[in-house]
Design a protein around this nucleic acid. Structure first.
Length: 359
DNA sequence: TAGGCCATCTGGTCCT
DNA sequence: AGGACCAGATGGCCTA
């Protein structure tokens, strides 16, 4: 599975990087001119505040690539190292005067370095985009942030590892719990929505009956942080979690656990599964409860993903068009599914999970 | 307006 | 020497 993942991702990354290199070459040079001038001015005009520091030294070292045309400058620079101001003479390489020629070379070097760095970061972002496409849910319009993408990918790998290790069909609830460990509330909702789970169900029902997979320090039970993710905490993602406030509020009614039809008790036993290093899921952090309009609340429809229909009615959770769960005492805002996909537009979650065993 | 996220620039360090 | 990688700084954009 992992090898498949890598074999899928790597070509994508390479292709995307190549595409980008082609497509943005001109853009880059344009960009360079505009933005770098200011920086280059800094280089040339700013007095170095770190006199005698490593920065000054490195600058000197960087200037060692002087060609012959600087040789004639050496003589006049010799005198500069004499401590004309009475300061103790500095050790190490002599600081050379920033002649126009040297400044020009320094500028060129810096521009080249900047371009490389930009390219590198773009490649990194391309790789992240590829990663976004292979983690359990993917939205074209609401991208997961970088950090959330990495967290989700980590959880995904761990979850797949659990599945392989146990060799058993997992419980969807526990599976989603694993996926969402340490993720922000909006991301949690996104993933849960992708997997056709009511977020709150697994928030409030941490384990199916008999499940051994328990998150010891479950991020769903306590939220010491208020972690907010502006990128995906857009109105689309105003989450049901907002209604679930762990800080002394009770939200007992209206919750129904959603278990897979005929789902077996999960046998997760994951001692290796580390507690989240990142701010755990935010139950109410920064998210307002959004009550769906009455019309929405009364509007039922089966979730439909692009190219995906659920064959299991009991997995179809009635949601309003705005994502609000209908018919309940609470609203449940779920991401807009028209552009949210299980990666590769695969089958519904349970078929998805089954596929893990048959690969 | 504050905070999160991001792109970019920059200098330092390490490696080839 | 030059490139890759990294982390800090900065400013812009977006959302609550």
């Amino acid at each position: 599975m992992l090898s498949r993942l890598f074999s899928e991702v790597l070509p994508d990354v390479q292709r995307l990087a190549a595409d980008w290199a082609e497509g943005t070459e001109n853009e880059d040079s344009k960009d360079k001119v505009g933005k770098h001038e200011a920086c280059d001015l800094d280089d040339d005009d700013l007095d170095d505040p770190l006199e005698g520091s490593s920065r000054a030294e490195s600058e000197m070292a960087g200037d060692d690539d002087d060609d012959d045309e600087d040789d004639d400058e050496e003589a006049e620079e010799e005198g500069d190292d004499e401590n004309s101001e009475g300061k103790p003479k500095k050790r190490g390489p002599k600081k050379r005067k920033m002649t126009p020629a040297r400044a020009e070379r320094s500028k060129v070097r810096r521009m080249k370095a900047n371009t490389r760095e930009r390219t590198r970061m773009h490649d990194l972002n391309s790789a992240l985009d590829s990663l976004r496409k292979v983690v359990p849910c993917y939205s074209k319009t609401q991208k997961l942030s970088k950090i959330e993408t990495l967290r989700l990918a980590k959880n995904y790998i761990l979850a797949l590892g659990e599945i392989l290790r146990n060799g058993k069909r997992p419980d969807v609830v526990a599976y989603v719990q694993m996926l969402c460990k340490g993720l922000s509330q909006p991301t949690t909702n996104l993933v849960a929505g992708c997997l056709q789970l009511n977020t709150r169900n697994f928030l409030t029902e941490p384990c199916a009956e008999g499940a051994r997979f328990h998150v010891p320090s479950s991020p769903f039970s306590v939220n010491p942080y208020s972690y907010r993710c502006s990128r995906i905490s857009s109105p689309h993602y105003q989450a049901g979690g907002a209604a679930l406030n762990v800080r002394g509020h009770s939200y007992g009614s209206g919750y129904e656990a959603v278990y897979p039809p005929g789902g077996t008790s999960p046998e997760y036993n994951s001692p290796d599964y580390e507690a989240p290093h990142s701010p755990p899921v935010c139950i109410n952090g920064g998210l307002r409860q959004q009550e769906a309009p009455e019309a929405d609340r009364n509007y039922h429809y089966s979730m439909h993903y692009s190219g995906l229909t659920t064959s299991r009615p009991s997995h179809s959770i009635p949601y309003g068009p705005s994502g609000a769960r209908s018919g309940g005492a609470h609203s449940e805002n779920i991401p807009p599914f028209h552009d949210v996909h299980l990666h590769h537009d695969r089958a519904p979650p349970y078929e998805d999970l089954n596929a893990f065993f048959h690969n």
